[in-house]
């Protein structure tokens, strides 16, 4: 077993320092070490997207990254974009437009969608489907997920316009 190393990562704006084995998967760091359980484990092989987080501005599946690779990086999880009383527009849209059933895929879906809408603020349906293709959902058939993202995009764009 390899030796523990010192790591520092920023998660949802908070600096975290700890000792860990370099090959610890980031999803375990988040869930077990830091108690951040919004990112879920669906497959641990990078196929389902339930563990998606944002790292230095990119969508990353936290089950495919070692903690050593995340050292010094800035990580945002579902918990970092809004809480029960101040929902992010995407969170609100998934809630209002029934973009979830069992909810297990939801945190990964939403956090991925935050990046998608940053990259393409006004996506077509096809762009949404393509941009979300790394996240699978066994329950909804995706219709309401796509609708939720469209609704959030519209709301965010309207808010942006109003601010300008």
């Amino acid at each position: 077993m390899s030796k523990k190393q010192h790591y520092a990562i920023t998660v949802n704006g908070k600096e975290e320092e700890f000792l860990a084995e370099p090959r610890e998967l980031l999803i375990y760091t988040l869930r077990e070490r830091l108690n951040i359980t919004g990112p879920h484990i669906g497959c641990e092989t990078s196929h389902c997207g339930a563990c998606t987080v944002t790292i230095d501005g990119k969508s990353v599946k936290a089950c495919t990254m070692f903690v050593a690779q995340a050292n010094g990086k800035d990580i945002t999880t579902i918990e970092g974009i809004g809480g029960p009383d101040n929902l992010h527009p995407l969170q609100n849209a998934f809630k209002e437009h029934h973009g979830l059933q069992c909810g297990y895929c939801t945190p990964g879906m939403i956090i991925r969608a935050t990046k998608l809408l940053e990259e393409i603020p006004n996506p077509t349906e096809e762009e949404i489907r393509f941009g979300m293709s790394g996240n699978i959902c066994r329950c909804t058939g995706y219709q309401n997920i796509v609708k939720s993202i469209q609704a959030a995009a519209a709301e965010m764009n309207a808010a942006k316009e109003a601010a300008e």
Partner: peptide
């Protein structure tokens, strides 16, 4: 009424607990 899922607010914030999320 077409109300959202009862735990929707928990799901969208990552606060809905599954077995693996229960503090042990």
């Amino acid at each position: 009424k077409p109300l959202p899922h009862d735990a929707a607010r928990l799901h969208v914030t990552g606060a809905a607990r599954y077995i693996d999320d229960i503090p042990t």
